[in-house]
Design a protein around this nucleic acid. Structure first.
Lengths: 220, 220
DNA sequence: GGCCAAAGTAAATGATCGTTCAGGGGCTTC
DNA sequence: GAAGCCCCTGAACGATCATTTACTTTGGCC
């Protein structure tokens, strides 16, 4: 094998030949290029040269807009994650008082987003671990916040008697259940594509239905 | 920031100071070191020097046992994946004829393994994308095989009338449901730890219970 | 036309990486 | 004790990386 062959995380050759200058403002062009490059090939092997070439610039120009490659990654992940947290809160707040409606709304919004913004979700979930320790902290905080929204819904449902989640040896673990549901919904973004049998909205309904069944939601 | 600071994917500093010669045969020692290093820090940033230092050897010695870093990754992933496929088949085969028992046995074995062998599962699932195109193929085949086991169980259950999975707009998508369940069970390995409220076996029961509820299994 | 600041260029810097390879111990087997 | 073999060492080698730097270019405004 040739010396120092770089891992690529992509089936097709990188094909970074596109070098036409992106018409958008440079910061946006860089963000967009970084998203697709990181999603396709992974943060550590995407070079600053790759990203800048993809929007028709040269390496050095990156540093007119971002302090470092690390800051660029944090920028695009943080914006995605913040928006996710926001729409989840919004969905639950607008779903009325019934925990069943809250859970369904939460899962639907979450799944639709992860189907539709697959690239962004992929980067935010898979590449987060490359962030420096300081930068990763607030992303993790946001994730915990989303998980806690879900845990709260489950607890409400149990307290009001509309949910009857599995008991194992007489005990429940709502946090584990919340994590399980989030894992499930998050990773749609890893394999869902327009080729599937279901549309994004149908996927959302399916996942919401599975979630309601899993927690033993009583008929409304 | 200093020049070329490498991303690390770890909270603590790498702490690769341990350099005592591993008593096991070198191939096994290398495999073990590679597993933990890849799991903690990710394939692209773990250097051959890191792995070999962790078992008390120097860089060059790797190539007495593996053709390349890529082959080493494939070796450890393929063994993990092969073993997983084997125990899944075995669990289903030994669960009798009822699709409910088959599904429960499958999920239980799958979850227990992903809780117990967290490091191995993590590497096999997260680092697979760094494999060269040729080497990644048979891993993907094995994954598809496992998914198909699950799809087959679901179809059997529906055909015999013991499962009643969600219908969305009058249609089902068993493949999507299988993927959802696998995502859920696979990613326990990303967050489960001995600190949790449930033991490995309890987690397995919980997940099996959720799976049976999700597919609408009729009481046995 | 001249000025200025924002933004881009291209080369240089210092470092690290996977892999190779010539040399050399420490075995067993005669 | 010599030969053969397995395994390891440690210094290359060739390549690539993120970041810095000195320098142009560009476009709006007087």
């Amino acid at each position: 094998m040739s010396k120092r062959s770089k891992p690529v995380r992509v089936v097709e050759p990188p094909a970074t030949v596109a070098a036409e200058r992106d018409p958008r403002p440079p910061v946006e062009a860089i963000r967009a290029a970084a998203f697709t490059q990181f999603a396709e090939r992974g943060y550590p092997v995407v070079t600053v040269r790759d990203i800048m070439k993809a929007c028709g610039l040269t390496q050095g120009a990156l540093y007119n807009h971002f302090k470092s490659k690390d800051e660029l990654l944090h920028d695009i992940i943080a914006s995605t994650q913040g928006e996710l947290e926001r729409i989840c809160q919004q969905a639950v707040a607008g779903a009325g008082d019934d925990p069943r409606a809250k859970l369904a709304a939460f899962v639907r919004v979450y799944v639709v987003r992860h189907c539709r913004l697959r690239v962004e979700a992929l980067v935010a979930n898979r590449e987060i671990s490359w962030l420096g320790a300081e930068r990763v902290a607030d992303i993790r905080r946001s994730r915990r916040a989303i998980r806690d929204i879900l845990v709260t819904i489950l607890r409400e449902g149990v307290d009001r008697g509309v949910f009857d989640p599995p008991q194992i040896d007489g005990r429940r673990d709502l946090k584990a259940m919340a994590m399980a549901m989030l894992d499930q919904c998050t990773h749609v973004s890893m394999w869902y594509g327009p080729g599937g049998a279901f549309s994004e909205e149908q996927m959302a309904k399916l996942y919401a239905d599975m979630a309601l069944r899993a927690v033993g939601a009583k008929p409304q």
